[in-house]
Simulated scan of single mutants.
Amino acid sequence: MATDNLARLGSAMRNLPSQAEPSELRDLVVYLAQRATYEAVRSAAMIALQSPRGDEAIREFFAVGWGQAQERAQLDQQMHRHIVARVLATHSPEYSPQVVASARAAERGTDAERAEYVRSGFRVAQERDQATRDADGQAAAALRDADRCYVRGLREVTGAQVRLAATYATREGATDSDIIQFFHFSWASGARLDTEDFRLTAEAQEVRQVAAIERLTREARAAQKAAESAGDAAKEAMRRQAADAWGRVATGGAPAVGSWQQAQQVADAQASFWGQVYRDAVAQSSMNWRPVMKSANAARTDWRQDTLHAQQQVSFWRKLIAEAKEREEQLRPVSG
């Protein structure tokens, strides 16, 4: 109901008459600063109220600021849903019952409840689970020197986020509770972040590469079409131009092969690493290693998928380059 009211309020705001009294507008901004559903809107309203530009800032809020704040809020809500989903993917109810229960509640809750969970709820639930483990003492009793050495070794050999988590867990002044937290959560979270970082980088790379090659391909097709319809006097020169254009397609695709080969090597190495972690976890009897089995197996599966995708991309770009070179050779005048 509150969301419906705010939606109607937003519609009314967009249709405010230009001659509305500044005091009326200010009252509405005060209301939004106090009662708007989204924190981004409340913050934008408060900034407008505190601006030294006075009524100008208030009117600007309705003209531009509110809409921008709404967009930011919607992006925030998408990110909050993503974070809650990540928490559920990296925690088990057996070892992190408070975290899982609160994340499930946030998943079913409102946007405001998810925002609050991301802001503080997750940390509070995590601290409660850790306090329970510390009070129980079983996880600490199961911790061995070999486990501590294993975590220290991860500071050098894995993805950046796992390295950071391992470094923090074994920092100067760290306690066994930090090591246990690493086994029960930080390792899986770092693994998930490393996978996401890799995929985001690959996705951005892929979009740039495809956009660039699409432009070159359009130019080459247009040049080829022009050459095919050219008169005899201009045909040879235009065929040469079309051949050059297809040559640029082949040249432009070459870096993509190298970058995807490198991505394949990274993904393959990570898949092998997580396969070893999974085997190590299976071989342990310690309760601290049991949460690692699920996360290691999931990480291995993710990286295998990334390896396959990289292989497919290498094949795609090699085929594209081969086809471009073939067209270049077909169009290149014999005398050229």
Score class of each variant (00 low, 15 high):
162 V>F: 01
310 A>N: 05
215 R>F: 02
118 V>W: 06
247 G>L: 05
123 R>G: 01
217 T>C: 04
250 A>K: 00
143 L>N: 03
327 R>V: 14
88 L>A: 04
262 Q>D: 12
18 S>M: 11
6 L>C: 07
236 E>C: 09
325 K>G: 09
33 A>P: 10
331 L>M: 07
84 V>P: 04
88 L>G: 04
317 W>N: 12
168 Y>T: 15
296 A>N: 09
170 T>L: 08
88 L>V: 05
115 A>E: 15
266 V>K: 07
223 A>Q: 02
161 Q>S: 12
158 T>F: 01
151 V>I: 04
77 Q>R: 15
193 L>Y: 12
239 R>F: 09
48 A>E: 03
74 Q>E: 15
182 F>V: 10
296 A>K: 11
1 M>K: 02
199 R>T: 10
114 R>W: 06
297 N>T: 09
315 S>C: 07
174 A>N: 01
147 D>Q: 03
46 M>G: 14
75 L>H: 13
151 V>Q: 03
65 G>R: 00
17 P>A: 05
323 E>C: 12
280 D>W: 01
101 A>G: 06
54 G>K: 11
258 G>Q: 13
26 R>E: 15
16 L>W: 02
264 Q>A: 11
306 D>E: 14
6 L>Q: 14
60 E>R: 05
50 Q>P: 00
215 R>E: 15
8 R>I: 11
155 R>V: 01
11 S>N: 08
332 R>M: 15
152 R>V: 14
154 L>P: 03
314 V>F: 03
49 L>V: 07
25 L>K: 02
195 T>W: 00
191 A>M: 07
297 N>D: 12
83 I>V: 14
268 D>I: 09
25 L>C: 08
280 D>T: 08
146 A>S: 13
295 S>K: 10
116 E>P: 09
208 R>E: 01
39 E>D: 13
133 R>Y: 00
242 A>E: 00
231 G>M: 12
334 V>K: 11
296 A>T: 09
319 K>L: 13
180 I>H: 00
143 L>Q: 02
77 Q>S: 14
245 A>Y: 06
322 A>G: 10
323 E>F: 08
68 Q>L: 14
222 A>P: 03
66 W>A: 10
253 G>T: 12
194 D>E: 06
265 Q>S: 14
274 W>Q: 10
229 S>L: 15
175 T>P: 01
26 R>Y: 14
75 L>S: 08
125 A>T: 06
25 L>S: 07
142 A>Y: 02
265 Q>E: 15
223 A>G: 03
255 P>L: 13
174 A>I: 02
186 S>F: 01
156 E>A: 07
86 R>K: 12
58 I>L: 15
268 D>W: 13
325 K>R: 10
23 S>C: 06
299 A>M: 09
213 I>W: 02
169 A>G: 02
132 T>Q: 09
176 D>C: 04
